[in-house]
Amino acid sequence: MTKDKQHIILKTENLAIGYKSKDSNNVVASNINIELEQGKLVGLIGANGIGKSTLLKTLTKVQNPLQGDVYLNNQDISKYSALELAKVLSLVLTEPIASKNLSVFELVALGRQPYTNWIGNLSKHDIAIVNNALEQTNISELKQKKCFELSDGQLQKVMISRALAQDTDLIILDEPTTHLDMYHKAYILKLLQRLAKDTGKTILFSSHEIDLAIQLCDTLIVMTETEVVSDEPCNLISKGTFNALFPEDLISFDKITGRFKVNK
């Protein structure tokens, strides 16, 4: 008996990412072949400047690939219209929202924009989805608060809730744990793990919290100087992939504890 192959939400084929300049292409990473399955929590880790953001921008169609293709639900993302894409892919970005005078409910309800009519009226169905998204992220009691009254941790939950309300197969978060204390870092990632399991959505996030990511993710995408590997965390540990993550002069990966240690 082989395990049923889960539905593949996102797939890249021979993807090369980077920036086009006048006479040459500045390739950040190439030969990227990853597959994200439905209902999985996937972490994207790598050193600063290795190209995590460029990869996320390419996967979310903010930036075009230099080579290769990105498939979302078996369709090339370059063929999606902006509105179609908004119904299968939602984002949580690092940038602060423009107006913090919105109430939590209003902000989460903005996630319904791709589905609402020309003036943005919420149907009963929309309101039910928004309330559900608030419950799933445990922020129902914050509903009427204004966003400027919230802590960073609460605001991050609100942004995740907004992405849930957008009701997409894939949610991509760019460093969702920055600015948070240790407890809230764990809280947010644990929340993402539960959401992936409960809602069957695929959740991809970039992070520097390697310890937490190893413990919580179903799959990890590791970007190193030479390659982009995607596998289950324990396989990556036994393959020794994490050692290639950083220069070895300062820190090294301990296979037994699954943590990085400062060299003495």
Binding site: P96, L102, L110
Partner: peptide, 24 residues
């Protein structure tokens, strides 16, 4: 302006979020 009401509300999130919500 009336037809822009929804757009203006989306823009409260910032332009990048607005684009991710399907706004042209």
């Amino acid at each position: 302006s009336l037809t822009s009401v929804k757009t203006l509300n989306t823009l409260l999130l910032g332009e990048n979020y607005a684009i991710s919500l399907g706004l042209n």
